Simulated assay, not measured.
Amino acid sequence: MSSSILHITNGDSTTNYLKKLHFSGDFITWREMLCEGKTTTDVGSETFWKNRFSFLKSSYNISKKKFINYTLKEYRNLCNKKETKEIVLWFEHDLFCQINMIAVISWLKKYRKGYHISLVCSGKIKGSKKLKGLSELTENQIHQHYKNRVDLTQDDIEYADYIWELYCSDSPLRLEAVYKFNPMSPFQYLAAAIEAHLLRFPSIKNGLNSIENTILETANTHQLSSKDELVHKLLKNQTTYGFGDIQYEHQIEQLQKLFTSFNPVKLSRKGKKVLENQMNFYSELRDENSYLGGAKKYSFLFNNQSEKLLQITS
């Protein structure tokens, strides 16, 4: 007998929490990090997964076996669950989750047309200044979120799919032009996530993006005894990105020429000059194979004064 509800969650911690609270239905965990590396619009296609594996292998040394067991098997489970007519999406406010969310909705638009799709999205909690993840919610809060889940209309699904299409395009300029202009959207955290995404293109001032500048700033203003301590501080202070430790470790690795030591953490003279915008590190970081969505990261610069992106024409 088929289950009446299919829950698609943002990660194993959410899936395990919902199971622990005895939520009824089947569960699929979306195990991807589509906010990093090259993405194409055709979620689930052979080309899509080839691109994803290529990125994960080169950037994070993920083996084919792990990719198949961890991500592809769960995706195939999703493909096989066709009988359930109600699908509940569980995602969070940050960039990591919001990009995964619109990709899943794009897939559902194509392969689950006419299904009843609803969304539970955590973030703002009454009485808390901090935005919260799903696994940080109390039992009462998570039940309340579920009760207040938003039914997605066809227009909502089309909008999420459109933003996904723009995210995957070879230029972020159209995305920059439209992402703010849908005040009626039920995706209340999507605009902030896209704004954070656009800040990941290198700054015209010093060639580093917002995250890379934050790494240098954190290293320079705190006395940190190790790289682990630096990562911990970055994780604790982040608000919009939703990154894990391996993502910050990868980012720090790209910047290692700007450090003299990680034990304790110390910036080099060059690192301090870059941080103070006295030197531009763009040419040393530039990598033709580095993508943010469908766009080459180093083909665009963020102008801090106009707060707009500029395309580099070669």
Rank of each mutant, 00 (worst) to 15 (best):
H22M: 04
G25P: 07
I28H: 12
T29W: 09
W30Q: 05
E32C: 04
M33K: 07
L34I: 04
T41E: 05
D42P: 01
D42C: 00
V43F: 03
V43Q: 01
G44T: 01
G44L: 01
S45G: 03
S45K: 09
R52I: 01
F55I: 02
L56D: 00
L56G: 01
L56P: 02
K57M: 06
Y60C: 01
N61T: 02
N61G: 04
N61I: 03
I62D: 04
K64R: 13
K66I: 07
K66H: 03
K66S: 04
F67Y: 06
I68L: 10
I68Y: 05
T71V: 05
K73E: 14
Y75A: 07
R76S: 13
R76T: 08
L78K: 07
C79G: 01
C79Y: 03
N80E: 15
I87N: 14
L89G: 10
L89A: 13
L95V: 09
Q98F: 12
I99G: 03
N100H: 12
M101R: 11
S106I: 09
S106E: 11
W107N: 14
L108C: 07
L108Q: 04
K110L: 15
K110V: 04
Y111S: 15
R112T: 08
R112I: 05
R112A: 11
K113T: 10
I117K: 08
I117C: 07
L119A: 08
V120L: 12
K124L: 03
K124E: 13
I125M: 06
I125C: 14
K126S: 15
S128E: 13
S128T: 12
G133H: 09
S135M: 09
L137M: 12
L137R: 05
